[in-house]
């Protein structure tokens, strides 16, 4: 099992290595200016000397991202259950959620800064707005996903609505919920970084990118992008790993052996 996982890592690792080597080669051979594209070695060097700054930026941004992710996903899930209980709420809330999800992030980010101040809570608010709706629509669809036969079964047991929800419809919705959780990792990352373009204390990944572009510190921009890419992938990977553990029974993960 462990051996196979290691073996699975070899091809992407090799591809990445070759890609970096080609990148380095082209930049050096063609003499591409650093402003246009720094070589991987230059980015790595900048990364290594800037670890304290990058770490501070990372924590600042992650605070807003995680807080927004938890609140956005959590409220999306709860509202989905409410919407499911009442047709009135469904007809009222779903179109509103639709509208909110269509709001441009560059428009709401400055407004959130006015409402919640310069620090991370305003970034969290932007992330809440971005992650809420995907969770809402996915969960609503997931709650509908149990088959007619599975529902009839609960009916023959004279199960209450609440029992049907907890024993059947919520577990059946889990694959949809995890879909939203995974999509939202990316949205939360983008939201938290972009929101920092519109007012922030002098720390944070979005702040770093916007200021370093101004100073032509392109290698620092790339080092920050590297941090964002690594942490974004790790965040997604963690959620995907939890998904595997929780919805192991779903057709896409099943193993006959167990």
């Amino acid at each position: 099992m462990i051996d196979r996982r290691l073996a699975d890592l070899v091809p992407p690792f090799l591809f990445g290595l070759v890609f970096l080597a080609l990148w380095e080669l082209v930049v050096r051979a063609a003499g591409v200016p650093t402003i246009i594209l720094p070589a991987p070695s230059a980015i790595a060097a900048r990364f290594l000397v800037s670890i304290p700054t990058l770490a501070a930026d990372f924590w600042q941004t992650v605070k807003g991202m995680l807080a927004g992710y938890v609140v956005g996903c959590g409220s999306g899930l709860l509202v989905a259950i409410l919407v499911d209980r009442s047709d009135f709420l469904r007809r009222g809330l779903l179109p509103m959620g639709n509208l909110v999800s269509a709001l441009p992030i560059v428009g709401i980010a400055p407004i959130m800064v006015m409402w919640f101040g310069f620090d991370w809570p305003s970034k969290a608010a932007v992330v809440v707005v971005m992650t809420f709706f995907p969770m809402l629509v996915n969960t609503v669809a997931g709650l509908e996903s149990a088959s007619a036969m599975e529902r009839d079964l609960m009916k023959t047991y004279a199960a209450s609505d609440w029992q049907t929800l907890t024993a059947l419809r919520l577990p059946a919705a889990l694959p949809f919920v995890f879909n939203a959780l995974k999509v939202n990792t990316t949205l939360a990352m983008i939201g938290a970084i972009v929101a920092e373009f519109f007012g922030t204390p002098i720390v944070g990944m979005g702040f770093r990118i916007s200021t370093e572009v101004g100073h032509l510190g392109i290698d620092m921009v790339w080092a920050t992008i590297l941090v964002a890419a690594l942490s974004g992938s790790a965040f997604y990977g963690i959620v995907a790993a939890i998904e595997r553990r929780v919805t192991f029974w779903h057709a896409s993960f099943r193993t006959k052996g167990a």
Partner: peptide, 19 residues
């Protein structure tokens, strides 16, 4: 009778919950 749980119903498919 249903509310008093007088029936056991077996469907065309097993309809076992996979989780």
């Amino acid at each position: 009778a249903r509310l008093k749980r007088r029936y056991g119903y077996v469907f065309q498919a097993p309809a076992l919950y996979p989780w």
